[in-house]
Protein backbone atom coordinates (compact mmCIF):
# COMPACT_ATOMS: atom_id res chain seq x y z
CA UNK A 1 0.00 0.00 0.00
CA UNK A 2 2.75 2.38 1.01
CA UNK A 3 4.53 1.80 -2.31
CA UNK A 4 1.34 2.24 -4.31
CA UNK A 5 0.66 5.53 -2.56
CA UNK A 6 4.20 6.75 -3.29
CA UNK A 7 3.80 5.74 -6.91
CA UNK A 8 0.47 7.52 -7.28
CA UNK A 9 1.84 10.68 -5.71
CA UNK A 10 4.87 10.57 -7.97
CA UNK A 11 2.64 10.23 -11.04
CA UNK A 12 0.12 12.84 -9.98
CA UNK A 13 2.33 15.90 -10.41
CA UNK A 14 3.45 15.32 -14.04
CA UNK A 15 -0.01 14.12 -15.11
CA UNK A 16 -1.61 17.24 -13.66
CA UNK A 17 0.99 19.43 -15.31
CA UNK A 18 0.39 17.85 -18.73
CA UNK A 19 -3.39 18.12 -18.34
CA UNK A 20 -3.08 21.77 -17.39
CA UNK A 21 -0.86 22.42 -20.40
CA UNK A 22 -3.26 20.57 -22.71
CA UNK A 23 -6.16 22.65 -21.41
CA UNK A 24 -4.25 25.93 -21.72
CA UNK A 25 -3.15 25.16 -25.27
CA UNK A 26 -6.61 24.13 -26.43
CA UNK A 27 -8.30 27.16 -24.94
CA UNK A 28 -5.76 29.49 -26.46
CA UNK A 29 -4.24 30.57 -23.18
CA UNK A 30 -0.88 29.33 -24.49
CA UNK A 31 0.34 30.24 -27.95
CA UNK A 32 0.40 26.89 -29.79
CA UNK A 33 3.16 28.22 -32.01
CA UNK A 34 5.54 28.01 -29.04
CA UNK A 35 3.65 25.65 -26.76
CA UNK A 36 1.72 23.11 -28.83
CA UNK A 37 -0.69 20.86 -26.96
CA UNK A 38 0.89 17.72 -25.51
CA UNK A 39 -1.51 15.60 -27.56
CA UNK A 40 -0.20 17.23 -30.74
CA UNK A 41 3.39 16.62 -29.65
CA UNK A 42 2.65 12.98 -28.96
CA UNK A 43 0.99 12.60 -32.38
CA UNK A 44 3.97 14.17 -34.11
CA UNK A 45 6.34 12.04 -32.06
CA UNK A 46 4.45 8.87 -33.00
CA UNK A 47 4.38 9.85 -36.67
CA UNK A 48 8.16 10.43 -36.61
CA UNK A 49 8.75 7.11 -34.89
CA UNK A 50 6.59 5.21 -37.42
CA UNK A 51 7.72 6.80 -40.64
CA UNK A 52 10.04 9.71 -40.03
CA UNK A 53 13.20 7.89 -39.14
CA UNK A 54 13.29 9.12 -35.55
CA UNK A 55 14.39 5.69 -34.39
CA UNK A 56 17.33 5.85 -36.80
CA UNK A 57 18.34 9.12 -35.17
CA UNK A 58 18.04 7.53 -31.74
CA UNK A 59 20.16 4.61 -32.88
CA UNK A 60 22.85 6.87 -34.35
CA UNK A 61 22.99 8.97 -31.19
CA UNK A 62 23.03 5.95 -28.88
CA UNK A 63 25.82 4.24 -30.81
CA UNK A 64 27.92 7.41 -30.65
CA UNK A 65 27.13 7.76 -26.99
CA UNK A 66 28.10 4.22 -26.10
CA UNK A 67 31.31 4.11 -28.13
CA UNK A 68 32.33 7.54 -26.88
CA UNK A 69 31.41 6.52 -23.35
CA UNK A 70 33.61 3.44 -23.53
CA UNK A 71 36.47 5.47 -25.00
CA UNK A 72 36.30 7.87 -22.08
CA UNK A 73 35.25 5.61 -19.22
CA UNK A 74 37.75 2.77 -19.68
CA UNK A 75 40.88 4.96 -19.56
CA UNK A 76 39.21 7.03 -16.84
CA UNK A 77 38.68 4.00 -14.63
CA UNK A 78 42.16 2.64 -15.28
CA UNK A 79 43.89 5.92 -14.56
CA UNK A 80 41.61 6.52 -11.56
CA UNK A 81 42.64 3.12 -10.20
CA UNK A 82 46.30 3.94 -10.68
CA UNK A 83 45.89 7.32 -9.01
CA UNK A 84 43.93 5.81 -6.14
CA UNK A 85 46.45 3.06 -5.50
CA UNK A 86 49.76 4.80 -6.04
CA UNK A 87 50.59 8.09 -4.40
CA UNK A 88 53.31 9.06 -6.94
CA UNK A 89 50.87 8.74 -9.86
CA UNK A 90 48.36 10.80 -7.91
CA UNK A 91 50.94 13.44 -7.06
CA UNK A 92 51.96 13.69 -10.71
CA UNK A 93 48.50 13.96 -12.24
CA UNK A 94 45.95 15.16 -9.73
CA UNK A 95 46.51 18.90 -10.14
CA UNK A 96 46.27 18.59 -13.92
CA UNK A 97 43.03 16.63 -13.65
CA UNK A 98 41.55 19.07 -11.18
CA UNK A 99 42.47 21.95 -13.50
CA UNK A 100 40.90 20.35 -16.58
CA UNK A 101 37.83 18.87 -14.89
CA UNK A 102 35.75 22.06 -14.54
CA UNK A 103 36.03 23.09 -18.20
CA UNK A 104 32.48 23.06 -19.56
CA UNK A 105 32.51 20.07 -21.88
CA UNK A 106 30.74 21.80 -24.72
CA UNK A 107 33.26 24.66 -24.66
CA UNK A 108 35.88 22.52 -26.36
CA UNK A 109 33.59 21.75 -29.32
CA UNK A 110 35.01 24.42 -31.64
CA UNK A 111 38.54 23.21 -30.92
CA UNK A 112 37.51 19.61 -31.51
CA UNK A 113 35.88 20.56 -34.81
CA UNK A 114 39.09 22.26 -35.90
CA UNK A 115 41.22 19.29 -34.92
CA UNK A 116 38.98 16.36 -35.86
CA UNK A 117 36.73 17.92 -38.47
CA UNK A 118 33.03 17.14 -38.85
CA UNK A 119 33.42 13.33 -38.86
CA UNK A 120 32.53 10.72 -36.26
CA UNK A 121 35.85 10.81 -34.41
CA UNK A 122 35.27 14.36 -33.17
CA UNK A 123 31.87 13.42 -31.75
CA UNK A 124 33.28 10.36 -30.03
CA UNK A 125 36.08 12.47 -28.60
CA UNK A 126 33.58 14.98 -27.25
CA UNK A 127 31.68 12.29 -25.37
CA UNK A 128 34.83 10.55 -24.21
CA UNK A 129 36.24 13.81 -22.93
CA UNK A 130 33.00 14.61 -21.13
CA UNK A 131 32.99 11.37 -19.12
CA UNK A 132 36.72 10.72 -18.72
CA UNK A 133 37.41 13.08 -15.83
CA UNK A 134 34.30 12.23 -13.91
CA UNK A 135 35.00 8.49 -14.15
CA UNK A 136 38.61 9.08 -13.18
CA UNK A 137 37.77 11.12 -10.09
CA UNK A 138 34.99 8.76 -9.03
CA UNK A 139 37.22 5.69 -9.38
CA UNK A 140 40.06 7.32 -7.50
CA UNK A 141 37.77 8.36 -4.67
CA UNK A 142 36.27 4.86 -4.60
CA UNK A 143 39.68 3.21 -4.26
CA UNK A 144 40.79 5.61 -1.57
CA UNK A 145 37.58 5.10 0.42
CA UNK A 146 38.21 1.37 0.80
CA UNK A 147 38.80 0.75 4.51
CA UNK A 148 42.54 0.11 4.99
CA UNK A 149 41.79 -3.00 7.02
CA UNK A 150 40.52 -4.71 3.87
CA UNK A 151 43.85 -4.26 2.14
CA UNK A 152 45.47 -5.43 5.38
CA UNK A 153 43.47 -8.64 5.15
CA UNK A 154 44.84 -9.32 1.68
CA UNK A 155 48.37 -8.32 2.58
CA UNK A 156 48.43 -10.34 5.81
CA UNK A 157 47.56 -13.42 3.75
CA UNK A 158 50.51 -12.64 1.47
CA UNK A 159 48.28 -11.95 -1.53
CA UNK A 160 50.13 -10.99 -4.69
CA UNK A 161 49.76 -7.43 -5.91
CA UNK A 162 47.53 -8.61 -8.74
CA UNK A 163 45.26 -10.52 -6.39
CA UNK A 164 45.08 -7.52 -4.07
CA UNK A 165 43.85 -5.36 -6.94
CA UNK A 166 41.40 -7.95 -8.25
CA UNK A 167 39.92 -8.89 -4.91
CA UNK A 168 39.97 -5.62 -2.98
CA UNK A 169 40.67 -2.51 -5.06
CA UNK A 170 38.36 -3.35 -7.97
CA UNK A 171 35.25 -4.56 -6.11
CA UNK A 172 35.83 -1.92 -3.46
CA UNK A 173 35.79 0.86 -6.04
CA UNK A 174 32.90 -0.57 -8.05
CA UNK A 175 30.05 1.23 -6.22
CA UNK A 176 31.77 4.57 -6.81
CA UNK A 177 32.37 3.62 -10.44
CA UNK A 178 28.66 2.98 -10.91
CA UNK A 179 27.84 6.33 -9.35
CA UNK A 180 30.24 7.80 -11.91
CA UNK A 181 28.46 5.98 -14.73
CA UNK A 182 25.06 7.33 -13.69
CA UNK A 183 26.38 10.88 -13.48
CA UNK A 184 28.27 10.49 -16.75
CA UNK A 185 25.15 9.45 -18.64
CA UNK A 186 23.71 12.91 -18.05
CA UNK A 187 26.92 14.60 -19.18
CA UNK A 188 27.18 12.40 -22.25
CA UNK A 189 23.60 13.12 -23.31
CA UNK A 190 24.11 16.86 -23.04
CA UNK A 191 27.31 16.66 -25.05
CA UNK A 192 26.04 14.37 -27.82
CA UNK A 193 22.91 16.45 -28.39
CA UNK A 194 24.90 19.68 -28.31
CA UNK A 195 27.52 18.30 -30.67
CA UNK A 196 24.88 17.04 -33.08
CA UNK A 197 23.29 20.50 -33.15
CA UNK A 198 26.33 21.89 -34.87
CA UNK A 199 28.19 19.07 -36.47
CA UNK A 200 25.88 16.36 -37.70
CA UNK A 201 23.21 15.54 -40.21
CA UNK A 202 22.02 12.57 -38.17
CA UNK A 203 21.10 11.94 -34.58
CA UNK A 204 18.54 13.30 -32.18
CA UNK A 205 20.42 16.55 -31.75
CA UNK A 206 20.53 17.11 -35.50
CA UNK A 207 16.80 16.42 -35.67
CA UNK A 208 16.07 19.04 -33.02
CA UNK A 209 18.35 21.57 -34.66
CA UNK A 210 16.75 21.04 -38.07
CA UNK A 211 13.29 21.46 -36.55
CA UNK A 212 14.46 24.71 -34.99
CA UNK A 213 15.77 26.01 -38.30
CA UNK A 214 12.47 25.41 -40.09
CA UNK A 215 10.46 26.36 -37.00
CA UNK A 216 8.78 22.96 -36.82
CA UNK A 217 7.93 23.37 -33.16
CA UNK A 218 6.09 20.09 -32.73
CA UNK A 219 9.06 18.11 -34.04
CA UNK A 220 11.29 20.14 -31.77
CA UNK A 221 9.21 19.05 -28.78
CA UNK A 222 9.17 15.48 -30.07
CA UNK A 223 12.96 15.61 -30.10
CA UNK A 224 13.01 16.82 -26.51
CA UNK A 225 10.69 14.02 -25.47
CA UNK A 226 12.99 11.59 -27.24
CA UNK A 227 16.11 12.78 -25.40
CA UNK A 228 14.24 12.57 -22.11
CA UNK A 229 13.25 8.99 -22.91
CA UNK A 230 16.83 8.17 -23.87
CA UNK A 231 18.12 9.52 -20.57
CA UNK A 232 15.47 7.62 -18.68
CA UNK A 233 16.20 4.39 -20.55
CA UNK A 234 19.96 4.68 -20.08
CA UNK A 235 19.58 5.30 -16.37
CA UNK A 236 17.25 2.33 -16.11
CA UNK A 237 19.76 0.12 -17.92
CA UNK A 238 22.59 1.35 -15.70
CA UNK A 239 20.46 0.59 -12.65
CA UNK A 240 19.79 -2.95 -13.82
CA UNK A 241 23.45 -3.59 -14.59
CA UNK A 242 24.38 -2.15 -11.21
CA UNK A 243 22.00 -4.48 -9.39
CA UNK A 244 23.45 -7.46 -11.22
CA UNK A 245 27.05 -6.35 -10.69
CA UNK A 246 26.66 -5.33 -7.05
CA UNK A 247 24.30 -7.93 -5.58
CA UNK A 248 25.55 -7.28 -2.05
CA UNK A 249 24.05 -3.81 -2.13
CA UNK A 250 20.55 -5.09 -2.80
CA UNK A 251 18.09 -3.81 -0.26
CA UNK A 252 20.06 -0.74 0.65
Amino acid sequence: MERLRTLLLALAAPVLLVLLWEWAARTGRLDPLFFPAPSAVVQTWWRLVRSGGLLDDVRVSLVRLMIGFALGAVPGVLLGMAMGLWQPVRAALLSTVVALYPIPRIAILPLVLVVFGIGESGKLFMIGFSVFFLMLLQTMAGVRDIPPVMLDVARSLRASRLRQYLSVAWPGALPAIFTGIRLSIGFALIVIVGTEFLASKQGVGARIWLAYQILDIETLYAGLVTTALMGWGLNLAAGIIERVALPWRAGR
Binding site: P147, V149, M150, D152, V153, S156, S167, V168, P171, G172, L174, L246, W248
Partner: peptide, 11 residues
Protein backbone atom coordinates in the same frame (compact mmCIF):
# COMPACT_ATOMS: atom_id res chain seq x y z
CA UNK B 1 44.86 -12.19 11.69
CA UNK B 2 41.40 -11.56 13.05
CA UNK B 3 41.14 -7.80 12.80
CA UNK B 4 39.29 -5.32 14.94
CA UNK B 5 35.95 -4.12 13.57
CA UNK B 6 34.58 -4.71 10.09
CA UNK B 7 37.14 -6.60 8.05
CA UNK B 8 34.93 -8.85 5.92
CA UNK B 9 34.56 -7.94 2.26
CA UNK B 10 30.97 -6.71 1.85
CA UNK B 11 31.02 -7.74 -1.83
Amino acid sequence: VVFQGVSLFPW
